[in-house]
Structures are given as structure tokens and as C-alpha cells.
Amino acid sequence: MKNLIKVEELAMFLLSMYLFSLLDYAWWVYLVFILTPDIGMLGYSVNTKVGATAYNLFHHKGIAILIGFAGFWWQLPEMQLAGIILFGHASIDRILGYGLKFDDNFKHTHLGNL
């Protein structure tokens, strides 16, 4: 099952790269911003509850899709970029086994324990 999830997440990551290619940005922009959603981990410097909430906010694919669609709807390239980056980053994390966090421990995720 874990391999099937990884293949599915790889397909979503490739989708994010395709959607990015539709934007008018150089490819280095994708590479520069793909790790920015990890800024959500700074919440763990407060406590695990704040950390999990912040992390999940920056790694939730539903939020990424809403931001991306809003950007396409309103023709806002920066918002389109943000949604695509959030979506692609979340897919990379899922491939690596990092899921959305429970508030008791950073290693306790919806995909199991790290």
C-alpha cells in the first residue's frame, strides 16, 4: 500500500510541475520556492500543537488547491504559483513519508509514525 501511495503522490508532483510549466516563470523559480512550505515547521519552536497546526496549514493539499484555483480564477500568477508550490511540496513530503501531523509529536503523522 505504501508504494501505491508513493506512486500516486509522484503523479501529483508531476502534475504540479506540469501546471508550473503553464505559468510564465523560469524553472529556477520552482526550485527556489519548492521548500518554502517547510517554514510551517517553525511553529514547533512554540509547542507541538502550534507546530502541527502551522505545518498542516502549509502542507494541506486542499488548501493548496483552493489557493491555486483562486489564482487561476482571478488571474493572479503569484497566487497560482503559491498553490502549485504548496501542492507539489506536499506531494514530495508524502513520497518521503511525511504526512500531516498530529499535535502530540512531530513524528506522529496521518501516514503512521516516522
Rank of each mutant, 00 (worst) to 15 (best):
L31S: 09
T36N: 01
M79N: 12
V32F: 14
S91N: 10
L19G: 08
Y55W: 08
A90C: 03
Q75I: 11
L14G: 03
N47L: 04
G43A: 02
G112V: 08
A70Y: 14
L66P: 00
L42V: 13
E78D: 13
W73T: 15
D24A: 05
M79W: 15
F69C: 13
V7A: 05
K2W: 02
F20T: 10
M17C: 13
K49M: 07
W74V: 09
L4I: 11
I67V: 15
G71L: 11
Q75R: 13
V7M: 03
Y44I: 08
Y98D: 02
F20E: 08
A54Q: 01
Y30W: 15
L100K: 04
L114T: 12
K6F: 01
N105C: 06
Y25E: 09
I92Y: 05
F106D: 01
F13T: 06
D93F: 04
T48G: 00
F13Y: 13
V29K: 11
M41W: 07
L76C: 09
I85V: 12
N47S: 06
L35Y: 14
S21T: 14
W74P: 00
L19T: 14
L14T: 12
V32G: 07
K49F: 11
G97N: 06
L114R: 13
G88Q: 09
M41V: 06
G97Q: 09
I84N: 08
H60Q: 01
E9I: 01
V32E: 11
G40H: 05
K107W: 12
Y55M: 01
I84H: 10
V50P: 04
G71Q: 12
H59G: 01
F13D: 03
L66Y: 10
I65D: 02
D103M: 03
A64E: 02
N47A: 06
A54D: 00
P77M: 06
S16W: 08
W74G: 02
N113R: 15
V29A: 07
D38S: 06
A70I: 12
G97E: 10
G83K: 07
G43K: 02
S91P: 00
L42Y: 11
T53D: 01
H110S: 01
Y18D: 07
V29H: 07
I95T: 05
L111G: 00
T53C: 00
K49V: 12
L66N: 03
N47D: 13
G62A: 01
K2P: 00
A52L: 08
H110P: 00
H110Q: 05
I67F: 09
V32Q: 09
L86M: 15
A70L: 14
L57G: 01
F13W: 12
M41G: 00
L81V: 13
L111P: 00
L35F: 14
L23M: 13
G68M: 11
S16D: 11
Q80P: 10
I67M: 07
M12I: 07
L96Q: 11
E8K: 06
